[in-house]
């Protein structure tokens, strides 16, 4: 029985209050994905639109310098957080330079 591992009535805060802010991060939603967005750091113009439009805060801003093959220097990059990305494809669609590919998830 699953019930046996769950807390007893007196181990739950009164009224079912949740005391740990933002603990939904313990419940990844990455397995919802059927398509995976892949950001091409070479093509990416660092406009942050994917970060803005993502409904799941699943675009991470990585503050590390990046140098493209053509020699362009960036102070930061954006990456998809696959733990939470549900694969909606908004970022793919909204990327102004088509730097995000959308590929089918395969096991």
């Amino acid at each position: 029985m699953q019930g046996k591992q769950l807390p007893k009535w007196n181990e739950i805060p009164p009224g079912g209050a949740i005391l740990e802010p933002g603990n939904s991060v313990k419940r990844p939603t990455g397995d919802w994905r059927t398509f995976r967005p892949i950001i091409d750091k070479e093509k990416c113009v660092r406009c942050l639109l994917c970060w803005v439009y993502c409904p799941d805060a699943a675009i991470k801003i990585i503050d590390e310098p990046y140098r493209t093959a053509s020699g362009k220097e960036w102070k930061f990059s954006v990456e998809v957080d696959y733990t939470f990305c549900k694969g909606c494809g908004i970022c793919v669609e909204e990327c102004p330079v088509k730097a995000i590919e959308f590929v089918e998830e395969v096991k």
Partner: peptide
């Protein structure tokens, strides 16, 4: 977008449908 705070006060892991704009609005 660079003027927007980086902090996220709506944590991921919520179960709004994929592509639900409500998540983006609340963020």
């Amino acid at each position: 977008p660079f003027d927007l705070p980086r902090e996220e006060y709506l944590a991921p892991g919520h179960s709004l449908c994929a592509g639900c704009v409500a998540g983006m609005i609340v963020r």
